Simulated scan of single mutants.
Amino acid sequence: MAIEHYSLLSEEGWADSSVDQVFPANFWSDGGVVDAAEVEKALKGNLRISTKVDTSFHVNGLRLAPGFSLPRRRSNLDGQVIVLGGQFTITGEEDGATVSGTIGPGEFWTITAGTPHVMTAGPEGVTYLETWSEPLEKLEMYWYEADWADR
């Protein structure tokens, strides 16, 4: 079919996500390679990926469970998050200070490569598109290992 229509707000077209599926290259902030099995335990049931969004457009359709926080991370690419449903609180570091903001449906935020940040879903969870300045194959995600300790 030349034109497809689907809703990212429906319950159809979502699957449990693997960290490799969403972020192809994963490293600890000190440069070590992430053990995907360790991270998978924390993400299971908390991070879902759309089976409908075509990632060749440098975008992932993602959903976080209510109240779930993606631990602190930074990437090698500039990024943009567009909220479709629910809300996010984003906490980051800018010029040595902690900054935070909450965004809801129809709102978005951008982040410069290398900026550490935490993304926390609101009480209803959050459905969003995450897009990058270059193809996903070039994305490198750096996670802060201490933030995974209690998961």
Results as ranks from 00 to 15, higher is better:
Glu140Pro: 02
Pro123Gly: 06
Val39Leu: 15
Pro123Phe: 07
Ser10Asn: 10
Val34Ile: 14
Leu9Cys: 11
Pro116Ser: 12
Asn60Cys: 15
Ser100Cys: 02
Val118Asn: 11
Glu11Leu: 05
Thr91Val: 09
Phe88Gly: 00
Thr120Ala: 07
Ala113Glu: 02
Glu145Leu: 09
Thr55Gln: 13
Phe23Trp: 15
Met119Phe: 12
Ile90Leu: 13
Ala97His: 09
Thr115Asp: 06
Lys138Tyr: 06
Gly106Cys: 14
Leu77Cys: 00
Met1Glu: 06
Ala146Gln: 09
Asn60Trp: 06
Val118Leu: 14
Thr91Asp: 02
Ala2Asp: 13
Gly125Arg: 14
Pro123Ala: 08
Gly92Val: 01
Val22Pro: 00
Glu140Leu: 03
Phe57Cys: 14
Pro66Val: 11
Val19Leu: 15
Asp20Ile: 09
Arg73Leu: 12
Ala2Leu: 13
Trp148Asp: 01
Ala15Asp: 15
Thr112Phe: 11
Phe27Arg: 13
Val81Gln: 05
Ala2Ser: 14
Pro71Val: 03
Gly45Tyr: 10
Val19Gln: 04
Met141Ala: 12
Ala36Trp: 02
Pro105Phe: 03
Glu93Gln: 09
Ala65Gly: 09
Glu130Arg: 06
Tyr128Arg: 07
Gly92Asp: 09
Trp109Arg: 11
Val19Asn: 12
Val126Pro: 00
Thr127Pro: 01
Trp109His: 09
Asp147Arg: 04
Glu134Thr: 03
Thr131Trp: 03
Gly104Lys: 09
Phe68Pro: 04
Tyr144Asp: 09
Val59Gly: 00
Ala37Thr: 12
Trp148Arg: 07
Ala42Phe: 04
Trp132Phe: 15
Trp148Cys: 03
Tyr142Arg: 04
Gly86Ile: 07
Ala42Met: 14
Arg63Phe: 00
Met141Pro: 01
Trp143Asn: 02
Gly79Thr: 14
Ser100Glu: 06
Val33Asp: 07
Ala146Leu: 06
Arg63Pro: 01
Leu77Tyr: 00
Trp132Glu: 12
Thr51Tyr: 01
Pro116Met: 13
Thr102His: 11
Ala97Glu: 13
Gly13Leu: 01
Glu11Tyr: 03
Ser17Cys: 13
Asp78Trp: 00
Glu94Ala: 07
Thr115Cys: 11
Ser69Glu: 13
Pro24Ile: 08
Asp150Lys: 08
Tyr6Trp: 14
Leu64Lys: 05
Val22Arg: 00
Phe108Ala: 13
Ala97Asp: 10
Ala37Gly: 08
Arg73Phe: 15
Glu107His: 10
Thr131Cys: 10
Gly122Gln: 09
Asn76His: 04
Phe108Val: 00
Glu137Leu: 10
Arg48Ala: 06
Phe88Ile: 13
Tyr144Val: 07
Gly86Gln: 05
Thr91Gln: 04
Gly31Leu: 08
Glu124Gln: 12
Ser29Ala: 15
Glu11Trp: 01
Thr55Gly: 07
Phe108His: 14
Leu129Val: 05
Leu70Glu: 05
Ala97Val: 10
Val81Pro: 01
Lys52Tyr: 11
Leu139Cys: 03
Tyr142Met: 04
Pro123Tyr: 05
Asn46Gly: 08
Ala2Phe: 10
Phe88Leu: 15
Pro116Phe: 02
Leu77Lys: 01
His5Thr: 09
Ala149Gln: 11
His5Ala: 07
Gly67Gln: 08
Glu145His: 11
Ala2Thr: 05
Pro135Ile: 10
